[in-house]
Simulated scan of single mutants.
Amino acid sequence: MSIRIALAALLLLPTVAVAQTPPDGEAIFRRDCSACHGMDARNRVGPGLAGFWGRAAGAAENFRYSAAMRAKAEAGLRWDEETVRAYLRNPREVVPGGTMAYPGLRDEARLEALVAWLRERSAAQP
């Protein structure tokens, strides 16, 4: 009898909806990007990303870009919404022969969070 009462009590408990927390762009950057890039102008393994949004590719001062990235930059590659999204999804597709070791971010929610954070953060840079 006590088992029936316990089961009935469980069924009467209000259900709590578990909301999924949206991905945090800054956390994704720290995990996936910060080993090579910073949001300042200082170059590391990769170029500093201060103010990169909207600028021409291959434009970070004193960074030694791959020949493939230099060729894309000369062809007019710019870091806009479409390009950043495509590059972060699959860097080797956007710049074949480039040296970025990152394999790409396929999860659309995480990609959207990272792109939004980069856009906002880059705009806040001098």
Rank of each mutant, 00 (worst) to 15 (best):
A56R: 15
S34Q: 15
R44L: 12
W53H: 06
A60K: 03
Y102K: 14
A86T: 12
P96H: 06
R78I: 04
Y102I: 14
G46P: 10
S34G: 14
A75G: 05
V84M: 11
D80Q: 10
D80A: 05
N62W: 00
R64E: 00
V45Q: 05
L77C: 04
M100Y: 03
E81C: 02
W79R: 09
N62S: 10
P47S: 07
A56G: 13
E81D: 12
A41N: 06
N62Q: 11
A67H: 03
A71F: 07
M39G: 01
A56M: 11
P96F: 08
C36Q: 14
R55A: 02
Y102E: 13
G98K: 06
R64F: 02
A101H: 11
V45T: 13
R85K: 09
G48P: 08
A86G: 06
D80T: 13
A86D: 05
G97R: 09
N90R: 08
A50P: 05
A50K: 04
A50E: 05
P91R: 12
V84F: 00
C36T: 15
W53Y: 12
L77V: 10
P96N: 03
G98A: 09
A73Y: 01
V45R: 10
K72A: 04
E93D: 10
G97H: 07
A35Y: 05
L88I: 15
R78Q: 13
E81K: 08
F52I: 14
S66V: 09
R64Y: 00
Y102L: 14
G38S: 14
G51L: 04
R78A: 03
G97K: 09
N62R: 14
P47E: 02
P96I: 10
N43A: 11
M69L: 15
R42Q: 04
A75R: 13
A75E: 06
F63S: 00
R92K: 15
W53T: 03
N90Y: 00
T83A: 05
E93Q: 13
C36M: 14
M39T: 03
G54E: 03
A75Y: 01
V95S: 09
Y87N: 01
R70D: 02
P103D: 12
S34E: 15
G97D: 04
R92P: 00
E81M: 05
T99C: 00
G46Y: 09
Y65N: 13
M69P: 03
A59S: 15
N90D: 04
D40K: 08
A71W: 07
T83W: 00
R42K: 09
A56C: 08
W79S: 03
P47I: 11
A60I: 12
E81W: 01
Y102R: 15
S34A: 15
R64P: 02
V45N: 04
F63W: 12
G51K: 06
A56L: 12
P47K: 06
P91F: 10
F52N: 00
A56P: 12
G54P: 07
N43P: 07
A35R: 14
A59C: 04
M39N: 06
A56Y: 05
G48H: 07
T99G: 11
R89V: 00
W53A: 04
M39I: 11
R92Q: 07
A35C: 09
G98M: 07
L49A: 04
R78F: 02
A56S: 15
M100S: 09
S66K: 09
A75V: 04
G98W: 05
A67M: 02
R44C: 01
V84L: 12
A59R: 06
F52A: 08
R44Y: 02
A101G: 13
A67R: 10
A75W: 00
H37Y: 08
G54T: 14
